Amino acid sequence: NQASVVANQLIPINTALTLVMMRSEVVTPVGIPAEDIPRLVSMQVNRAVPLGTTLMPDMVRGYA
């Protein structure tokens, strides 16, 4: 089972991601792999991401 990136807090739209906003968790469906967390830092979300939501590739500008 692969860990995915999950929002550690509410992340408002257009917010640049920081390490404290994300955690890794084994979830279904699988989202962005946890090993990509360092790559996600400073990328912006293109929608509001509620606490506990799995980050999907289409939620992060420039990721996919």
Rank of each mutant, 00 (worst) to 15 (best):
T54H: 03
L17P: 02
P29L: 08
P57S: 15
I32P: 00
T28C: 10
N1E: 15
D36L: 09
E35I: 09
L19I: 12
I13H: 13
N14G: 12
R61A: 10
D36T: 07
M56S: 12
M59P: 01
T18D: 04
Q9V: 13
S4V: 02
V5K: 01
M43D: 03
A48C: 06
T54Y: 02
S24D: 11
T15W: 09
P33F: 08
D36W: 05
I37H: 03
L40W: 02
T15Q: 11
S24F: 10
E25N: 06
V27A: 09
M59R: 03
V30K: 04
V5A: 10
D36F: 08
V49G: 01
N14H: 08
T18N: 05
L40I: 13
Q9P: 02
R39V: 07
D58I: 06
P33I: 13
M22S: 00
V45G: 01
A16L: 10
M59G: 03
V60S: 01
T53C: 06
M59L: 05
L10T: 13
L17V: 04
G31P: 00
P57T: 05
P50Q: 11
R61M: 12
I32W: 02
V5G: 02
V20T: 15
T28R: 03
Q9C: 05
L55N: 00
V60K: 00
L55Y: 01
P12S: 14
Q9Y: 14
D58E: 07
P33C: 06
G31W: 02
A16W: 13
R39I: 08
V49M: 06
Q44L: 12
M56V: 13
L19W: 13
D58W: 11
E25Q: 08
L40S: 00
V60W: 02
V45H: 00
V49R: 03
Y63Q: 04
V27E: 02
P50F: 13
A48R: 10
L17C: 02
G62I: 04
N8W: 07
Y63K: 03
D36K: 07
M22E: 00
P29A: 05
M22F: 10
T54D: 01
V20P: 05
S42P: 02
P50A: 12
R61S: 09
V6D: 00
P33N: 11
A3R: 05
L51H: 12
I37F: 03
P57K: 11
Q2R: 03
T15N: 05
P50V: 11
T54C: 05
T15P: 00
P29N: 07
P38W: 13
T18A: 10
N8L: 07
P38K: 14
A34T: 10
V27H: 05
V45Y: 00
T28I: 07
A64L: 09
T53L: 15
I37Q: 04
R61K: 11
E25T: 09
L40E: 00
M22T: 02
L19A: 06
R23F: 04
V30L: 14
V5S: 03
E25S: 07
A16H: 14
R47I: 06
S42M: 13
M59Q: 05
A64E: 10
A16N: 06
Q44R: 11
S42K: 09
R39K: 12
R39G: 06
S4H: 02
M56E: 08
I13M: 12
L40H: 00
R39A: 08
L51R: 06
V20E: 07
A16K: 05
G31N: 01
Q9K: 08
Q44N: 13
A64G: 11
T18H: 04
Q9L: 14
P50H: 10
T15C: 05
P50E: 14
P57W: 06
E25V: 06
V45A: 10
L55H: 00
A7L: 03
V5P: 02
I13W: 06
V27D: 02
P12D: 14
Q44Y: 14
L55A: 00
G62H: 14
